[in-house]
Structures are given as structure tokens and as C-alpha cells.
Design a protein around this nucleic acid. Structure first.
Lengths: 230, 230
DNA sequence: TCTTTTTGTCATAAAAGGGTAATATAGGCT
DNA sequence: AGCCTATATTACCCTTTTATGACAAAAAGA
């Protein structure tokens, strides 16, 4: 598999250089642009797998450009991570849901950045860990988007599928509602924590039709755990 | 498990003192140095698990020292968190490029600092002993939030879990009710001391179902002790 | 555009947890 | 033994947390 390509759009030289270095180090290819116009050009003839976009840019701002991109069907699906300065409109990024897949506040550690990038890529399907994840008689097939117990198919919605995917790749560990939101929905969406309960309920309902409602366990005061063992 | 040791390198007395206090409070051991030379000496004969390093130091600057450290194989893997003043942000980011694992902007809250430290320690694997605490055939797993004796699961409530966690990480030592309240419930809650008795009782009841009620021992006039030996 | 599905939110029910006080028991001292 | 104090135990009630069902907005198909 060829290296994934990341477009960095950042006007400050020092930060841009650092980003590129970090990305290289982490095994990504990268192209850098200093403003939205540049970025647009690059986008038009190469097709990056992900865009790291500074919130503040000279000329067309990062957010502004982001909005435009999200209107074009052609580029809508390119995952985007926003770079923002601490305290700067952080709430707005979350609240407005302007289309970014995640955001990260400057300054940040290289490890954190890379972890975020990987998470977003994974969510958007660009990195597929294993095509098939099996746990006991549970099989989740990411390619066919199918979930089955033994040879019985389970009918799950997209969100339920992603939730299951997360659970099956992170079994036996408790996750808080916040963590689940971050991991499964993405950091930039703002959703009530209680909504998790409802999704858990939906999952359990489906699982219980096959006698496996015990897979998703409540850990009172902390969150939920997915585990084969009781 | 012995407490993790943190080397604080900071020239301003007030801040250094504060740091040391916060660290103690959070259960870390700490050694302080006021400049890079001092720090180097300490580093040479003790081996801290993490270094909290001020960006600006008299003499050899923090970053400069950091660079040197990262060149020495011996010290390369010691995780480092940079302390920086607000407004030096770009420099900081560049600092991360040179090997720091995280940075934190002054002023910061103790809570934030401790959280960062824990995160870095966890990432670097130093804190993994915290995931599972085993004492005899008792195993408390903080990741899974499970407590078991042998292969039997114990059903404990959140508070009981925390109490057990404290006991298991501080065995063989007597704690007064006040100390237990401070450590397990937190300093800021006001609860009747007698309430502890009730929780002890609940714990004992659970433990006694597995024939281990002798683990929690009453030390009349002082408090309670958790110990495998009778 | 018109359905159908998906998904987030709310209101309410249900359950679990946790603090307190009252009572019982035990330890230790004179 | 008798008394005082410290701890154990129990029951109760209030609070917090989670489960559940219904609804409507949004998204996806058709």
C-alpha cells in the first residue's frame, strides 16, 4: 500500500515545517500549502487522503475554505482536521459542526497529532485495519459492512456498525461516554452524552435477538464495556 | 509499586515549590533542580521517570538541554514535558519538534498538569503497572474496571471500587477515616467519618463471600488496614 | 418529490448507590 | 462486673445514574 498523502495548509513557516517533519516521520507523504488558493490548486491535481487545515489563514480563512469544500460533492469526503489555537473559538468548532472531522489545538504534541490523524483515517475508511474482525462467533466484516453471529446476519445501521467496530477492536475495556463519542463519532461533533445510552440500547436489542445482550456491559459511573466474558 | 519519580527543572522558586507540592499531592516523588547543570547531575545518579522542564532557564536553556539529552541514547527515552510561558507558542511547537513529549503553558492548573503527566507516562508505558494491580490472588484492573479473586468476579459499586483501588495500592498500612476520606473521596467532600465504617462493612461483606473478609482489618483507635497477612 | 431509514433528544421509569442515624456489639479500663 | 468509648450492623431514604419508549429532524433512497 502506498503511503497516504496529507495536505498541510498552514501559513506559519515554523509550524508548517514541523508538521511536515512529523508527518514524514510517521510514514505519511505530505504536501504543504500556505493559503487556501495554494491548497485548492494542489487539491485539484493531486488528491490527498486527508487535509490538515489551519483555522486562521491569510486571505480565505481555513473555515471559509472548509465550508466551500464541503459543498462540492467532489471534495466533500476528504477528511479534514482543523488546527486551532488554544481557546480560540474552540467551542465554535465543536458547536458549529462546520464539517471538520476533528480538530486539534495548537500547540500539540506530535504523538497526539499522529494519533488523531490515524483515528480520522480509520474512521473514514482510508486505513482499514483488518478487513475482518472476529471475536468469538462474532464476525465484523469492514469490507462488506456486515456483522454476523455464527452464520446469522445482524441488521445494523451505520452508526451501530461503527460502534460495534470500535467495541470489537477495543474489547474488555471500559470507555466513558465521552471517549466513545470521540472515538466513534469524532471529536468535532457535539452530541449529548446520554445519546450513547440510546445507541447502546439499540445495539443490545439487536444482540439480544441472538441471545448475546450480555456483550455490552454497563459499568456504572464510568461507561460501557464490550466483553465476551461476563 | 514504588512511586514514580519526576525531575522538576525550573528556576523560579515559587513555581518550583508549587510544582513539587502538586506532584507530591498527586502521588509522585519529585526532585527539583534550578538549572540544567543541576538537572544533569541529578539525572546522572537517579533516574527519573519523567522530566518537567522549563523552557527558559538561566545558563543552558531548557530546549538546549533537551536537545542534548535526546542525542544521548541513555537518556533519549526519558519523557519530557516542557513548561512554557504564554506567548512563546510557536517556539514551543518547534520545541516539540526537538523531542519533547508534550508541553504545557504557564499558567496552568494543577489538574491539567497532572493529567498531562499521566497521559505522557501512560503513552511511554511507565504507568502501565497502574492498569492492573495484583495482590495475591486479588486482581484489580482499572482498564476493565474489574475486581476479581482468582477467576471469580466481584461485584463492586464505584465507591467500593475506588476504596479497593486505594487499599490495594497502599497495603499493610493503617489509614484513619479522615485519611481514607481525603484519599478516596477527595478533600473537598464533607462526609461523616462513620460513613467509612459502612463502606468497610460493604467491602467486607463482598470479600467474605469469597472467604477473604480478613483482608480489611480494624485497628482500633486508628482506622483500617488492608493486608494479606493477618 | 415522496418514502423510508437513521439518529439525536427528551420525558419518564427503573434501578442502583451512597450517606445517615439508630441500635447492637465489642474492647478496654477501673 | 460496670462503664465508657469505639466499631459493627442494619434499615431507611434521598440522590444519582441508567434504561426505555416515543418523537421529530435529518439523511438517504427511490
Amino acid at each position: 500500500m502506498s503511503r497516504l498523502n496529507i495536505l498541510v495548509v498552514e501559513d506559519e513557516d515554523a509550524i508548517r515545517a514541523m508538521l511536515v517533519m512529523v508527518l514524514e516521520q510517521a510514514g505519511f507523504k505530505s504536501i504543504a500549502a500556505t493559503d487556501a488558493e495554494d491548497a485548492q490548486k494542489i487539491l485539484d491535481d493531486s488528491s490527498p487522503d486527508l487535509i490538515l487545515l489551519d483555522w486562521m489563514l491569510p486571505g480565505i480563512s481555513g473555515v471559509e475554505w472548509l465550508r466551500r469544500l464541503k459543498k462540492e460533492p467532489m471534495y466533500r469526503d476528504v477528511p479534514i482536521i482543523l488546527l486551532t489555537a488554544r481557546g480560540e473559538e474552540e467551542d465554535k468548532v465543536r458547536g458549529l459542526g462546520c464539517g471538520a472531522d476533528d480538530y486539534i489545538t495548537k500547540p500539540f504534541s506530535p504523538k497526539e497529532l499522529v494519533a488523531r490523524i490515524r483515528a480520522v483515517l480509520r474512521r473514514s475508511g482510508k486505513i482499514q485495519g483488518l478487513a475482518q474482525i472476529a471475536l468469538g462467533d462474532l464476525v465484523l466484516d469492514t469490507e462488506q459492512h456486515r456483522l454476523s453471529i455464527g452464520d446469522k446476519q445482524l441488521e445494523v445501521s451505520p452508526t451501530e456498525f461503527r460502534l460495534m467496530q470500535f467495541f470489537m477492536t477495543h474489547p474488555d475495556k471500559v470507555y466513558s461516554r465521552t471517549q466513545l463519542l470521540d472515538q466513534v463519532w469524532g471529536r468535532s461533533v457535539y452530541i449529548e452524552e446520554r445519546t450513547i445510552d440510546v445507541h447502546i440500547r439499540r445495539l443490545r436489542k439487536i444482540l439480544s435477538e441472538h441471545g448475546r445482550e450480555d456483550l455490552v456491559q454497563t459499568v456504572r459511573g464510568f461507561g460501557y464495556r464490550f466483553s465476551l466474558i461476563d
